[in-house]
Design a protein around this nucleic acid. Structure first.
Lengths: 198, 198
DNA sequence: TACGGTCATGTCACAAGATGACATCGGTCC
DNA sequence: GGACCGATGTCATCTTGTGACATGACCGTA
């Protein structure tokens, strides 16, 4: 039998990232991942629900920071969510651009991973909305502010990891938030020009 | 060999819906579905990419109506998307509330199906954003208006299928759009009271 | 009627994902 | 030492999903 391996979880995550990058997600079997990490396939499934989860372990950390930020911020719902994402951008993503790009390119190469990412995002949104409701924000407002905030973050994130972008994620979030406000503000009535803050 | 069956696709969709409702998604095998429809498992996989797809066949129709509506409407981006969803609500969903409820309850019972639904929604959004860009709407505005519109639709839809709701989907969409505008409008400056249309 | 296409389907085989049941090893507590 | 326990390995099995090939129905043509 193979000797016991410390930090099986970390080793498996690293092995999975490497293999997905080298051969692609579909071309990598769970047995391959386990072999590279020096553990059994069964151990992989005890630590991760399925093959995709090996790529999405950071989700819990993200959720924690986000929820905490929401709880601590005192502003209107949408502004609170935006501020929370900006905090996450600083604390978690700022110095991990390269990793983010690798992960993103792996995800883009597999529909299965795209689905999983959407679900993770959705679950994150649910947590944020809960945090907002816990502060007394109404049901509908909490949902809409959260979803809008998530949209802003997603678009900003996509720009951030796109090649040839030198802006910081935090800046991009601010820009996209402003754009979203402009786009959803009351329709310009047939009058000549409506004054909007830009 | 089993006799040939007309409309294999329709039979399989119906069989899948029945079985998912009776036993749940996980407890139903593709072989079960095929057997009830009177065809072979292999035929199922030729008509549907995977087990989940049997529940999501209407997506293409939806996308078509939506894109057409966007192309034909002449208004600001966000308003265009909202109007398009309202048209879909009238033309497709209005008289299918019961079916929508059954489908929804099946989806809620399976994480895999939730993932697939999110992807379908995402793909729908991409199509709408493309339609918007085709009308000359800028890249960012198209994305943000679309995502916001989709959010409005999703929230409205959730209310619509919730038990004890008697409003029409179209009305709910209008309400949620107004709410979203209110939530994302510029933050109330420290001034006493900001006037907003409610 | 016979012939040759083509298209959908059935049949068989199989890799990979995922899970349950059980054995085993290392350490811990008494 | 010996009982206990948690993490791991091993084995068996089911299900998903796919490739390769055979068959049978249908269609136009000679």
């Amino acid at each position: 039998m193979t000797r016991w391996q410390p930090d099986a979880r970390g080793r498996l995550e690293a092995a999975a990232l490497e293999l997905f990058r080298e051969r692609g997600f579909d071309q990598t079997t769970v047995t391959d991942i386990a072999a590279r990490a020096g553990v059994d396939k069964r151990t992989f499934y005890r630590l991760f629900g399925d093959k995709r989860e090996a790529l999405f372990s950071g989700g819990k950390l993200l959720e924690g920071v986000l929820v905490k930020a929401v709880a601590e911020t005192d502003a209107a719902p949408f502004e609170t969510v935006i501020a929370a994402f900006q905090r996450v951008a600083d604390e978690i993503f700022a110095d991990r651009l390269d990793l983010a790009r690798v992960r993103q390119s792996i995800i883009e190469g597999s529909p299965e991973l795209q689905e999983r990412e959407l679900r993770k995002t959705s679950s994150l949104a649910a947590a944020v909305a809960d945090a907002l409701r816990a502060k007394g924000v109404g049901e509908t407002a909490a949902t809409l502010a959260t979803e809008s905030g998530v949209t802003v973050f997603r678009v900003a994130f996509a720009r951030w990891v796109a090649p040839g972008c030198d802006a910081s994620l935090t800046e991009l979030i601010a820009e996209m938030a402003a754009e979203l406000r402009a786009v959803t503000s009351a329709p310009a009535v047939p009058a000549p020009n409506a004054a909007t803050l830009t």
